[in-house]
Write a protein that binds this DNA or RNA. Structure first.
Lengths: 191, 191
DNA sequence: TTTTATTGATTGACGCGTCAATAAAGAACC
DNA sequence: GGTTCTTTATTGACGCGTCAATCAATAAAA
């Protein structure tokens, strides 16, 4: 049976299954056996490719962040001017791939994981720093030295709405969340 | 040794130890043995009084929410007028007892617990509903039918700043967080 | 002697990670 | 073109540790 070149396929399947399983259980308390079964293989094989459960979690987190980063980059390509760029960042944050229920649940759990797990914290910090610097860069020409405070509030609002969405249990509404953040932005800009 | 009337003392000690332990570990992955040891008793006694680990967690969560509710009530007593009342709610949310690092870490973990555990979800929903209705009640005379949207944004900002604080690792700064929310409020009020 | 407080020891389950074993695809050699 | 060797894929079984929960036993107050 051994078709060669299975490694990337298996790894991707495990990452996907990990996110799905964490999303379904709403907890990091998922076993390697559960993940492997969902991905259609034995737990031994999961260990063979990833070495440990920690590494599986990290790979899943990296995947989510990678997809998110790509979406932000894509949105920024089409944005013209500071305000449009900020709006692009906001829209990407609440875009479809980041805003699927399973992804949100996985995010929340990774937040908590970052309290314990140094590598997870590092990954998260990268995301936060990038979001903040994106916002700051485009806020500066709009609000000058208030940029720092405004960025804090916008980032806070984004995270807060995301959190509420994750906890609400009701189907995610990215459009409404985006509208709220953009409202807040307009208020900050005095429009 | 058996001094009578130990039950409430033991229960309180266990609740306190649970919050401290979750805060210290940054995770719900704490054992009954750890909690019991921190509270100065055997794990068997912890089970004797609470029956199960779930019940210990629920009691800890209830305690946090109870203290929070008391603080909000206290702050509201001194508040005169809608805007002052809103400010009181915000200040209480970022007040000292809710804003100790261990409490924040426990909160974040309880957020995630509520995804899995129905009773935890119920408790959290009570808090969210109360916060929202407090805000709505006093926003209505200030912004009329925009109250609903404004409440969503304020509650989102509060939760988001709280989340960021919990994840940042740096010592909590309740004053700054309060100032940000009040800034946002003033913008919404057109001041 | 009944009730309350308390714990050490034990049980039963569960989960991570490892290992030995199986099987097939390619490589190397003649 | 066949034979042997190596590499890759794959899994069942299991050891080892951990942990929640129970139990039987001890001790002191009422």
């Amino acid at each position: 049976m051994p078709k060669l070149g299975m490694e990337p396929i298996r790894r991707a399947a495990l990452v996907k299954a990990t996110i799905a399983q964490i999303g379904e259980r709403g907890s990091l308390d998922v076993t390697v056996a559960q993940i492997a079964k969902r991905a259609g293989m034995s737990s031994a094989l999961a260990h063979h490719y990833f070495g440990s459960k920690e590494q599986i979690f990290l790979a899943a987190m990296r995947h989510i962040l990678t997809v998110y980063a790509a979406e932000v980059r894509g949105a920024l390509l089409m944005a013209d001017g500071p305000q449009a760029r900020i709006e692009a960042v906001v829209r990407a944050g609440f875009g479809t791939s980041n805003f699927r229920p399973e992804t949100i649940a996985a995010w929340l759990n990774f937040y908590v994981l970052s309290l314990t797990f140094k590598d997870a914290e590092r990954l998260l910090r990268v995301y936060q720093t990038r979001l903040r610097s994106n916002l700051l860069h485009d806020l500066r020409p709009l609000v000058g030295d208030r940029a720092d405070a405004v960025a804090t509030r916008l980032a806070g609002l984004i995270d807060g709405l995301y959190l509420q969405q994750g906890l609400s249990g009701i189907p995610a509404d990215g459009r409404a969340a985006t509208a709220h953040v953009l409202s807040a932005l307009r208020l900050e800009l005095g429009q």
